[in-house]
Nucleic acid binder design. Structure first.
Lengths: 218, 218
DNA sequence: TAGATTGTTAATCGATTAACAATC
DNA sequence: TAGATTGTTAATCGATTAACAATC
């Protein structure tokens, strides 16, 4: 059996969780159908886009009815790999790392943080929100022994690249990076950089834009 | 005098901070020039794109030489409004909010968090990283009295929309939202949603994609 | 049946990439 | 001077939007 592989653009991937959120808020009764139009109305976005996005998950709908609710949820989750839990290590358990441990939603999104690592002796040995914190010097050994492939990095800027090199060497193949440093490694490693400064740039420029518009007429 | 207004796409805005990072790492000597090619090499991106992005800030370069370093930094910062500090309130001072207070970089990006607000009586009255924490019930009054326009929201999902309504009513016109809820208000309010689930969707899908590729040949 | 919604194909739009004359 | 780099205009690419036949 061959499964047709469907790809999706980054913008589409980023919209899918919003649809999922709407869908999960509904009563998931058997044989309930929901249309792209309904989802679009709810989110105040364009219905054609919703339809296209849903199609990229591979689901097939029924004209007039829409998409079977449970099947649709399953289709999106499966497309995003959210129906499998992937174990991950958290590297850096400062305030940001601890905040990330607080997001219980990650588990719903397929990511299971099973241990934390830090250099700070005051943290090592502690348990935060049920997660044990180990000394950072144990991370390579544990990556190998537990065959961990995913790391969440919440370190300060310095030393990030050195640690990345080490953990990639030890077996990490995907990194979710919260450090204020853009990580670039070879192409075999999947990197998702969460750069707050980039987000702030969009916000501050928009503020500036509005200011110029308002002030420009005086 | 009329200033030609230049717009920029969101992708361009998100790339500008990376250029700034590279530029600031250089010695800022007088009359030093740097080319788009050099920046591109450093970041391993395309030089044409760098040139286009820099142009959207309004700077004019010199053929053969490139861009005058100090002028270029100033041009990007001014375009992003990072050369003016904008005062902001932090709403929600849990672990995420406290992590955000730790990012001293925000000041370099034009955002000056001057007070925090929370419902938790254990936090109210405290000073965290030099920022006073007030009771959330004081936020509307202080927004009005101090003429604050920007809010950073780091609340849990519940109640977010109720609080947004209140602070917008009180005078907030721009929101940087870290709550796991997509905020939609009327068009006069600038909203920048930082949705970690969206970022995670990109990561987990890429992992899935790779898995399917590897496993597909067996 | 008629209306709503899908799936598919085409058109539009905007961002990225390419090409090249001007020039320090 | 020759080579490198800019500014500008054109070409390409990909995502969004539109159109419409098929159909429950």
């Amino acid at each position: 059996m061959t499964t047709k592989y469907i790809s999706a653009s980054i913008p589409t991937l980023k919209r899918l969780p919003r649809y999922l959120q709407v869908l999960k808020a509904l009563n998931q009764e058997e044989n309930m159908y929901i249309s792209a139009t309904k989802i679009a109305d709810e989110l105040k976005v364009d219905s054609i886009q919703v339809r296209k996005d849903l199609q990229s998950t591979g689901i097939i709908g029924k004209p007039k009815l829409g998409f079977e609710l449970k099947e649709l949820i399953q289709s999106i989750e499966s497309f995003l790999n959210w129906d499998n839990l992937t174990d991950a290590f958290l590297i850096g358990v400062g305030s940001l790392g601890q905040a990330l441990l607080g997001y219980e939603n990650f588990k719903k999104s397929g990511l299971n943080i099973i241990a934390g690592f830090d250099i700070d002796e005051k943290l090592v040995g502690k348990t935060i929100r049920g997660i044990n914190i180990y000394n950072i010097n144990k991370v390579e050994d544990l990556i190998k022994r537990m065959k961990i492939n995913v790391a969440v990095i919440a370190l300060p800027a310095n030393n990030v690249n050195m640690i990345v090199e080490k953990i990639v060497e030890a077996g990490i193949t995907a990194i979710w990076n919260f450090a204020p440093v853009h990580i670039n490694t070879n192409e075999d490693v999947i990197i998702e950089n969460v750069n707050l400064t980039q987000s702030l740039a969009v916000l501050t420029h928009k503020i500036n834009e509005r200011k110029n518009k308002d002030g420009g007429t005086k």
